[in-house]
Amino acid sequence: MKAIIVDDERLALRRMEKLLKEQNANTPIHLMGSFQDPHAALEAAKQEKLDVAFLDIQMIDMDGFELAEHLLNIQPQLHIVFVTAFQEYAVKAFEMNALDYLLKPVHQGRLAVTLQRVAESAGKTSVSYSSQKHMTLCCLQSLHYLDQQGNEQYLPWKTLKGQELFAYLVHYRDKTVSKQVLIDLLWPDYDSVRSRTQLHTAIYQIRKMIKSIGFDLEIKYKDEGYRLVWGDVKLDVEEWEALVRDAPKVTEETLEQHLSIMAKYTGDFLEEHPYLWAEYEQERLRLLWLNHVKQIAEYYVSVEQYTEAILIYQKIREKFPVMEEGYFYLMKIYAMLNHQGEVSKQFKLISTKLREEFDVAPSKELTEWYEQWKKGDQT
């Protein structure tokens, strides 16, 4: 896997180089260059085919988003991973179809997940689906599976800890997770003997469950850790994300395809299970969903299918109740349709939400738009 790093801070470059070198045992990486100058990175991209670029967002000469656009013009297949100290850049990162984003300071465990994602994507030029029926493990909404006939089935768990351990190993599939990490996560208050006993018991239960259902999965023990070896089993999260990333622009001809993708997102990642460790992945997928459905809504607005657009923005509002975006777009559509009462209603709803949750008022942009609209409406 050929990679470059771009960051205008020398120490940040050195740290990222060190992290990538330490990952080489699991994911072989050939670092083609580390650049403080974005222009030098562009020249390197013209000379050598790359798999992934790790880009800092805040740089003086050229920010990471602009650099990503130039790099993708040179190598459209290149995977972009943004590295930033500011989480608010996440939405824009996914709008650019970035493969992932990392928050500084970057940690080895988080980087391992990103590199796994890069390796999987780099090995696929397109998503192909066999006509043969396979079982599908599902993590959207809740942890369950679809049998070979496509019927929804639930996994037989004796303990909640066993279920969470399996979900964790699924999330870090094909990566070795140390026993100590698992113990600290699931049995932090137990003494060493009891916690190891609990871990061994849960692993046994998972192996028994895998065998009884017939999953092509295997748990292997190596180097004081466990690894879930993935076989011929589909994963709903992985398939949905691939469909989103490979989807063409929303047009009249591709609309049905996009609506089908939207329908496959049946709920947030492990939404029904309160796992703190799953929150980042849950939010990452929610942002991908948001970016995708916004494209559909914008298409509906462009062809004046306002009812359909309203339904999607209402979904956005429900999934992100304290994000202004859904309310703001609804206000603009209702204003176009001359539904004055609905415009005011949306403004009051977001104002109340923000006051109750954060004790703040709506943004200056939204407030000024609303005040200007009221003046125009009154005249």
Rank of each mutant, 00 (worst) to 15 (best):
I310T: 11
I310Q: 12
I310E: 12
L311N: 05
I312W: 09
Y313P: 03
Q314L: 07
Q314T: 03
K315H: 04
K315I: 01
K315L: 05
K315N: 08
I316R: 06
I316K: 03
I316C: 12
R317H: 05
R317E: 06
R317A: 06
E318D: 04
E318Y: 08
K319Q: 13
K319E: 03
F320W: 08
F320Q: 03
F320I: 01
P321W: 08
P321R: 02
P321Y: 06
P321N: 08
P321F: 04
V322R: 03
V322G: 01
V322D: 12
V322Y: 09
V322E: 08
M323P: 00
E324C: 00
E325K: 00
E325I: 00
E325R: 00
G326L: 02
G326F: 04
G326R: 01
Y327T: 03
Y327S: 02
Y327A: 01
F328A: 08
Y329L: 04
Y329V: 02
Y329E: 12
Y329M: 07
L330V: 10
L330S: 07
L330A: 08
M331I: 04
M331T: 05
M331L: 03
M331E: 04
K332I: 13
K332H: 10
K332W: 10
K332N: 13
K332D: 13
I333K: 10
I333V: 14
I333P: 09
I333S: 09
I333C: 09
Y334N: 11
Y334C: 06
Y334W: 10
A335P: 09
A335G: 11
M336P: 00
M336G: 05
M336N: 11
L337H: 07
L337I: 03
L337N: 05
L337V: 07
N338Y: 11
N338R: 14
H339W: 13
H339S: 09
H339A: 10
Q340C: 09
G341E: 15
G341W: 11
G341I: 10
E342F: 14
E342Q: 15
E342S: 13
E342M: 14
V343H: 09
V343Y: 09
V343G: 07
S344H: 12
S344G: 06
S344M: 07
S344Q: 11
S344C: 08
K345C: 13
K345I: 10
K345M: 14
K345W: 13
Q346D: 12
Q346P: 06
K348T: 11
K348R: 14
I350N: 01
I350L: 05
I350C: 03
I350K: 05
S351P: 11
S351G: 15
S351E: 15
S351Y: 14
T352V: 07
T352S: 09
T352C: 03
K353G: 00
K353C: 03
K353R: 08
L354Q: 00
L354K: 02
L354T: 00
L354R: 01
R355M: 13
R355D: 07
R355K: 12
R355Q: 08
E356A: 04
E356D: 07
E356R: 01
E357M: 05
E357D: 05
F358Q: 13
D359V: 15
V360E: 14
V360W: 09
V360G: 05
A361N: 14
A361L: 15
P362R: 12
S363K: 10
S363I: 13
K364D: 15
K364R: 15
